[in-house]
Amino acid sequence: MPDTECIFCRGRDVDAELNRVEVWQDAHWRLTVALSSEVLGFAYLEPKRHISHIHSLDGDEAATFGPAMARATAALKLATGADVIYVYIFGDGVPHLHVHLAPHRGGDALNDQMIRGEIVEEKLSNGMTKFYSSEFPPLPRTELEDIATAVRLQLNS
Rank of each mutant, 00 (worst) to 15 (best):
S37W: 13
F90Y: 13
S56R: 10
K48E: 04
A79I: 04
I54P: 01
S37G: 06
A74P: 00
L35S: 03
A70L: 14
A43E: 02
D26K: 05
E61S: 09
A34K: 14
I54M: 15
G41S: 06
M69H: 03
R30L: 08
F90R: 11
A70W: 07
L40Y: 01
W29I: 06
L40M: 13
M69E: 03
A63N: 08
H55G: 08
I54Q: 02
I54N: 04
L78H: 13
H50G: 03
L35F: 01
A79D: 00
M69N: 02
I54R: 12
L57S: 00
I85K: 00
R30F: 09
P67S: 08
V87E: 09
R30K: 14
G41L: 15
G81M: 14
F65Q: 03
L78Q: 13
S52H: 07
A68D: 15
W24R: 03
T80M: 13
L57G: 08
L35R: 10
A75L: 06
F90C: 12
L78T: 15
I54K: 03
A70V: 15
W24L: 10
R49P: 07
A63W: 04
R71D: 02
F90I: 06
T32S: 07
G59Q: 04
A74K: 09
I89T: 11
G59E: 08
K77T: 12
P47D: 13
S52D: 05
A72R: 00
V84P: 00
P67F: 11
I89L: 15
Q25K: 07
W24C: 14
P47V: 09
F90Q: 14
A74C: 01
A43C: 04
V84Q: 09
A62N: 07
L35T: 15
L35W: 04
A63S: 11
L35N: 09
L45D: 00
P67M: 12
E38D: 14
H28D: 08
A68L: 07
I51K: 01
G81A: 06
A72M: 04
D60N: 12
G66S: 09
I54H: 05
E61G: 05
L35E: 14
T64F: 07
F65K: 06
R71H: 02
A79Q: 02
F65G: 00
W29R: 08
Y86S: 09
S37H: 07
M69D: 03
L78D: 14
R30S: 04
S52A: 13
T32L: 14
L57W: 01
T32C: 11
A34G: 11
F42M: 08
D58Q: 12
A74R: 11
W29Y: 05
E61R: 12
F42Y: 15
Y86T: 08
I51A: 10
E46D: 03
E46Y: 15
A72Y: 01
I89Q: 15
G66Q: 05
A62S: 06
A70F: 09
A62K: 12
G81E: 05
W24S: 13
G66V: 11
L76M: 06
V23N: 11
G81V: 11
A27K: 10
M69K: 04
A70K: 15
V33A: 01
R49K: 15
G59I: 07
S36G: 12
E61T: 06
H53P: 06
V23D: 00
G59D: 02
